[in-house]
């Protein structure tokens, strides 16, 4: 997960997951893996989460988890929702053309 492209996409995916449900760090990494992003090393989500907080796209809140100890749950801010919508539209505008180009190459 080194290239800029992957970084941006990963960021979009993280925003999208947080949008669906407030999550804490470990849960987020599990979800990414469940969706098949196995190559993302688990720890690499934390610098991204910090950056997203710095850019005020998400905010963290320490609150009790169902199993007891307090955990930091993340949710989107208003800016985060805007950024996520931008990501959706950008992704939709490139996904189809990119797939077509790649398919032609593999033929």
């Amino acid at each position: 997960m080194r290239s800029q492209l992957l970084k941006g996409i990963l960021e979009g995916c993280i925003l999208s997951i947080i949008d669906q449900e407030a999550v804490y760090g470990y849960k987020l990494s599990i979800k990414l893996q469940q969706f098949g992003l196995n190559d993302v090393s688990e720890g690499s989500i934390y610098p991204i989460l910090l950056r997203l907080q710095k850019e005020k796209l998400i905010e963290g809140e320490m609150r009790p988890s169902p199993s007891g100890p307090k955990r930091k749950y993340y949710k989107l801010t208003q800016n985060g929702i805007t950024a996520l919508n931008e990501f959706y539209s950008e992704w939709q505008s490139i996904q189809f053309p990119v797939e077509k180009i790649i398919q032609r190459r593999s033929k």
Binding site: Y24, G25, Y26, S29, E42, G43, Y46, L50, R71
Partner: peptide, 13 residues
């Protein structure tokens, strides 16, 4: 807060 987060994560891992 970050250090606790990392520790929690490591613990589950």
């Amino acid at each position: 807060e970050l250090l606790i987060e990392l520790l929690d994560h490591l613990f589950y891992a």
